[in-house]
């Protein structure tokens, strides 16, 4: 057996554990917990908008309101490029264990489209223990 040559179990790297939202505000973490427990879609919205803002380039962030209108273009108005959008989507995929295809990603151009898309995607995934409340 291969393990005969191994004096001890394979070691793991020193654990440096952090949850994906650890560095976000308490309000965002609370909203995340509330969505998971109750399916409150407004709470999900709070989390999604915080994630968008967290990934926004510093200059564009300083020039845009904390709660951008649904019509705001992600690429253009909010200063994102396609790679940064892919990062936002990956963050959300990882947080709620959903998958977003390239085709779906290409259709998202505004804040409103992102919010709407995530609502449908996450609500239908069973990430929350309750059906959507609104």
């Amino acid at each position: 057996m291969a393990s005969d040559n191994t004096p001890s179990a394979p070691a793991k790297p020193k654990p440096v554990k952090s949850g994906p939202l650890d560095k976000f505000s308490a309000a965002v973490r609370d909203a995340h917990a509330r969505f998971l427990a109750t399916g409150d879609i407004d709470a999900l919205d709070t989390v999604v908008l915080a994630i968008v803002r967290d990934h926004q380039p510093a200059e564009a962030r300083a020039a845009t309101p904390a709660a951008p209108p649904d019509s705001a273009l992600l690429i253009g108005d909010l200063g994102f490029d396609s790679l940064a959008l892919a990062e936002i989507v990956f963050f959300i995929e990882d947080l709620y264990q959903v998958s977003v295809s390239n085709e779906e990603l290409m259709r998202i151009t505004t804040v409103g489209e992102l919010r709407g898309f995530i609502r449908i995607k996450v609500a239908s995934s069973g990430a929350s223990s309750q059906p959507p409340s609104s």
Partner: peptide, 23 residues
């Protein structure tokens, strides 16, 4: 910088390292 997540990293305060570069 021992974590795989840039959110956990710290560096001396005098350096301004923007998040869009850090990521």
């Amino acid at each position: 910088v021992d974590s795989a997540s840039w959110r956990d990293w710290t560096w001396p305060e005098r350096y301004e390292l923007p998040r869009e570069t850090l990521r």
